[in-house]
Simulated assay, not measured.
Amino acid sequence: MTNLILKPTRIDPYPEFTLASHRDAWRLNHGSDAGFDEQQTLAWLGALTRQRPHGLLHLWHHQCPIGQLELDPAMIHRDGSQEGYIYLLYLVPEWRGRGLGRWLLEQALQRIRAAGSSSAAMRYLPRNRGAERFCLRQGWRQEGPVDERGQLLVKPLTPLSSLHSHT
């Protein structure tokens, strides 16, 4: 992927792109802008970047942002297990269908593995059939029932630390 760079950011330098990404993702998941809350989204992004300085990343092509990734590579569960979570994987419409979604997802999984997580999770809303097909083709599996937050997807991973210890 030439001329592409994925780099951590904060909401304040690029609020227009970041909010537009969330608005478009909302539209894909809900069918319209109805219910999209810009202030709630800004609050979420502020909290994410305070708690996880590398949790908000923009994908750049030359000097233009074309994608967004939001994740927590190392969520600790009550039972002590650690899992990465992808909150948003987004590409602007004109960059979809070129293999960048797979590339961006692999970038997320590399960060999750590097953090030592043994699995990754994310959700999609059943209305978003494109997201469902994409994730299932990438080896994610559905877990549990669909609820108000959508369908949970999980993917077992081998953390990078485990891969290196066998060499």
Rank of each mutant, 00 (worst) to 15 (best):
Q51I: 01
Q40Y: 03
D24L: 09
A34P: 02
D24S: 06
H22D: 02
E38I: 14
W60A: 11
R111G: 04
H30T: 10
R78Q: 15
Q51F: 13
L42F: 03
L91A: 03
L88I: 09
H58P: 01
L100T: 11
R52H: 09
Q63E: 14
G31Y: 10
Q51T: 03
T41F: 02
H30F: 15
R98S: 07
L105C: 09
T41C: 09
G46S: 12
D37R: 14
R52S: 01
R98Q: 15
H54G: 08
E70K: 13
R111P: 04
P93F: 11
I76N: 05
W103T: 04
L109D: 03
P53G: 01
E38R: 15
G55K: 05
G97M: 04
I66P: 14
H77L: 15
L91H: 14
R102H: 11
P53Y: 00
S21P: 14
R27N: 02
R113L: 09
P65S: 01
W95S: 08
R96F: 13
S32F: 14
G101W: 07
G80L: 13
L88Q: 12
R113P: 06
W44H: 07
Q110K: 08
G55A: 13
L105Q: 14
R111S: 04
E70V: 10
I66H: 13
H54F: 08
L69A: 02
V92M: 11
H62V: 12
H58T: 05
D72V: 09
I76M: 11
G99E: 12
L69V: 01
W26V: 07
L105P: 06
I86S: 00
R111T: 05
L69K: 00
W26M: 03
